[in-house]
Design a protein around this nucleic acid. Structure first.
Length: 843
DNA sequence: GTAGGGTTAG
């Protein structure tokens, strides 16, 4: 570890990502952009007419009948307070977790029996303004000091009821005079609010506590830093940490742990409007790591929390190699991996597609004698389910039940998703019935999974039925719910219906995010028909949505746009086929969507870029595609400049810019990176820039975007798109050719693997295989399909050698660009001289 | 006062 290089005296102010942050006095703490207008600055519980729960969708029990009404009663200011709204990547995830509580948090048995009883009454009371006060008053002095009250705060927090917790807190501080106890209460309240994502309120509690003279404790600071961490407010966390210097408070281990957590989770914040490749993890990872080193420097020992937090940072950034290194160094520091460590690592592996390593970790865990807990089991089961290995998944379910952990909603959601992805709708229905028989209540995730599964399968009536049940439960859709549905409909070419839903979600006050828009961009040209662009819609028109209610008969009038959409779809008359076709074909509308994102301050990311390139690949007009890319350069010259330059065959500066871009991509996880290379290569290949495509693909190989792409005897294309794969076949054969001409022998058996094709979710879909088969035939390469593996082409070294020695083989293998910077087909050697890395790579 | 778990685009 980097402890050999001591950090500067105060490394925090010297480190890069936030060096421009100056200390602001707490009272001047700036507000989060976009949040200040929604924030209720004058929080007083008395002003709120409140009912019980604030409609947290993932409550373990279905909300009481009044929940929907309660959600409506609570002022919109409150429902918008959640930090989840600010950052596109965060959803209900962190909120839903809170409801299950943490068993360890109840470890302290210091509460009195009166506290338990008070809690019970608080939970069951209606939530009227005075009810908590009355309950607490009735217990009088039986509730002792901070222990009982912090218990109440925490338990109410675990149930998602921050309003009652706030009331309880205010009651307690009114009656408490000791500064010490007041400080404990404040820290506890801040922590509770932080866990529920109510970071603005947490900050107010903190500031108030500081002003009143009991908030200046390292506990309160740590709690607020942690609250910032949970909502992704890295800058604020750091600023607060730095402000501790001026208070004479010394950060301790917990403070550091929370701050590292903030750095690892803060990258999702859209306010860090850097470039489109500034994805999570990458930038802030250095900060987290520096903090770790700073702890070493200051003599603060790391504990299991520090390590698990740091590992989480590495894993969420897709940096699994680093994560494994860190994990390996733990025992030397006398910190031993626990089940949290393992589930963090396993999830990290699964995220970057290394399921083999994930499964190995499970074995390692068992070997190390670490018991799998609910999280670990669900993680394992989820991996199997996502792979379609249902026997294994069920075996895991059996095993967990055998040690007394019952299947929960998470378990079922994983199974439903897995079967749904494979199109096994009967099984989905069966499982859905089963989970209810087990008295498990479907939650938002369950419903959104089912609705999207059914929509993708065209089972619109089933989708509608589930949706109605979802509404009856009083659950509220969120951005993911809508995005999944929009994506499902886009994939069916129902772009207009998707647009309708986009409109509807915004009317509901749910902001689409980058994922929503990426789905829509991906829909362009999805099922391209012959001919193109006989009509050009103004891009702005795209966003004007039609009102389908006209098409409904009066008695069917249903005041719900989603139901209407399903109704129309299930009748098989969406009424938009014509429009859809137009939209589909008019891929230039992508620009309109892009502009819309810009307007809405939704930052495009690398997936947007890949989606746009894929849309280009589906467009038959070179002029249209190049024009689009050129216009997009106004938004991001680096990224689209490279794409445009390569497409136009500009070699002068383009390649050096491309290399810089590839450096950026290198920082991402492998599946994101390979999607980028696949998309770029596909587009270049599609428009005849085959040399360019090959350069890109070789650069990707050099940077190990696709693992173990080739050896002398085997070319593995299974992670590649058809363009990338074809460019790669040429490169590999040229390389083998050079081996032959150098006088070396080829291995006896040569094979080309295609697998099931790029990101194929359909078992047995051999699109890539068919493409490669056609290519091999067209160049006359003597390969044939292996008998035992239909995704594999094989040949023998001698046959291939003979073919490569034929006079024509070089000509068919060397790729040309249709367009070069001079606009003419010049002699190839000239062009190759201008572009580096042309020579087929030696092995 | 601090750490891990189900969903969305590729």
């Amino acid at each position: 570890m980097a402890s050999s290089t001591p950090p500067p005296h105060c490394s925090l102010t010297a480190t890069k990502p936030y060096q421009n942050h100056h200390f602001h006095h707490l009272q001047n703490h700036r507000h989060h952009q976009g949040s200040s207008s929604r924030q209720n600055h004058n929080w007083t519980p008395q002003k709120v007419s409140l009912n019980t729960h604030v409609s947290h969708a993932a409550a373990p029990r279905p909300p009481p009948p009044s929940a929907a009404a309660a959600a409506a009663v609570v002022s919109p200011n409150y429902s918008c307070l959640s930090a989840a709204d600010f950052s596109g990547r965060r959803s209900t995830r962190f909120v839903s977790k809170m409801h299950f509580g943490r068993p360890r948090s109840t470890a302290s048995g210091r509460r009195s029996a009166a506290a338990e009883e008070a809690l019970h009454q608080a939970i069951t009371c209606g939530g009227e303004v005075t009810c908590i006060d009355n309950i607490l008053l009735s217990f009088g002095s039986k509730l002792c000091a901070s222990d009982d009250y912090t218990f109440l705060l925490r338990e109410l927090g675990n149930r998602g009821d921050w309003l009652k917790a706030m009331q309880c807190f205010e009651f307690a501080i009114r009656r408490e005079k000791r500064r010490n106890e007041l400080g404990k209460l404040a820290s506890s309240m801040i922590s509770t609010l932080g866990r529920l994502g109510k970071v603005d309120l947490a900050k107010k509690v903190f500031e108030n506590a500081v002003n009143e003279g009991y908030g200046n404790t390292v506990y309160a600071y740590s709690a607020l830093i942690s609250a910032y961490a949970k909502s992704g407010y890295c800058d604020e966390a750091i600023e607060l940490f730095e402000s501790m210097k001026y208070t004479g408070l010394k950060p301790n281990l917990v403070t550091y742990n929370a701050l590292i957590d903030a750095c690892s989770k803060g990258g999702a914040d859209y306010r860090r409007a850097l470039d489109i490749f500034d994805e999570i993890g990458a930038g802030l990872w250095d900060t987290a790591r520096n903090l770790f080193d700073e702890m070493v420097y200051r003599g603060i020992d790391q504990d299991i929390y520090t390590y698990n937090t740091l590992l989480d940072a590495a894993c969420s950034g897709g940096q699994m190699d680093v994560a494994f290194e860190i994990m390996a160094e733990m025992p030397a520091k006398n910190v031993f991996p626990n089940e949290v460590t393992y589930s963090t690592m396993i999830r990290g592996c699964a995220k970057v597609g290394r399921l083999d390593r994930a499964l190995n970790l499970f074995n390692e865990m068992k070997f190390a004698g670490i018991k799998l807990d609910r999280v670990s089991y669900n993680t394992l089961l989820g991996i199997y389910a996502s792979l379609g290995r249902f026997d294994d998944a069920f075996a895991v379910g059996k095993e967990m039940e055998s040690i007394g952990i019952k299947k929960d909603v998470v378990t079922y959601n994983a199974l439903l998703d897995g079967f749904g992805k494979q199109g096994k709708y009967d099984k989905v229905k069966e499982l859905f019935t089963e989970m209810r028989k087990e008295n498990l209540y479907p939650n938002l995730l369950t419903y959104s999974t089912l609705i999207s599964v059914y929509s993708k399968g065209g089972l619109y009536e089933d989708a509608m039925e589930v949706y109605r049940e979802f509404k009856r439960q009083g659950l509220k859709a969120d951005v993911v719910f809508y995005s999944k549905l929009i994506d499902a409909l886009c994939k069916k070419g129902l772009v207009e219906s998707s647009a309708l839903l986009l409109d509807e979600m915004m009317r509901e006050g749910i902001q689409p995010n980058v994922v929503t828009y990426n789905s829509i961009i991906n829909a362009y040209g999805q099922s391209e028909t012959v001919g193109y662009l006989e009509s050009r819609m103004e891009s702005s028109k795209l966003m004007i949505l039609q009102d389908v209610s006209d098409n409904n008969t009066v008695e069917e009038k249903d005041d719900d746009k989603i139901v209407e959409v399903f109704k129309q779809l299930s009748c098989g008359k969406s009424g938009y086929e014509k429009l859809d076709q137009r939209w589909r074909k008019d891929f230039r509308c992508v620009l309109g969507v892009f502009r819309k994102m810009h307007e809405m301050e939704i930052k495009p990311n690398v997936v947007t870029f890949s989606a746009i390139l894929n849309a280009c690949s589906r467009c038959n007009s070179f002029e249209e595609a190049s024009l689009l890319l050129e216009e997009l350069r106004l938004f991001d010259n680096q990224v689209y400049g490279v794409a445009h330059g390569l497409l136009m065959g500009h070699s002068e500066n383009t390649w050096s810019k491309a290399l810089l871009l590839f450096d950026e991509v290198k920082r991402m996880d492998s599946s994101t990176a390979s999607a980028f290379y696949n998309a770029l290569t596909d587009m270049l290949w599609h428009f005849g820039q085959k040399r360019g495509a090959q350069l890109v693909v070789l650069e990707g190989k050099r940077r190990e975007v696709w693992e173990n792409t080739w050896s002398e005897s085997c070319l593995d294309l299974h992670l590649m798109s058809s363009g990338a794969a074809r460019a790669m076949v040429h490169a590999w054969l040229l390389n083998i050719r050079s081996i032959v001409y150098e006088g070396h022998e080829l291995p006896n058996l040569l094979s080309i693997l295609t697998g099931w094709g790029k990101h194929s979710k359909i078992v047995g879909d051999g699109a890539l295989k068919r493409t490669i088969e056609a290519l091999l035939i067209s160049i006359g390469a003597p390969f044939k399909i292996a008998k035992c593996n239909i995704g594999r082409f094989i040949s023998t070294g001698s046959v291939v050698t003979a073919w490569l020695r034929e006079s024509g083989s070089l000509k068919v293998l060397v790729l040309q660009d249709d367009r070069t910077h001079t606009g003419t087909i010049s002699s190839s050697s000239t062009r190759f001289d201008r572009i580096p890395n042309f020579q087929p790579l030696p092995l």
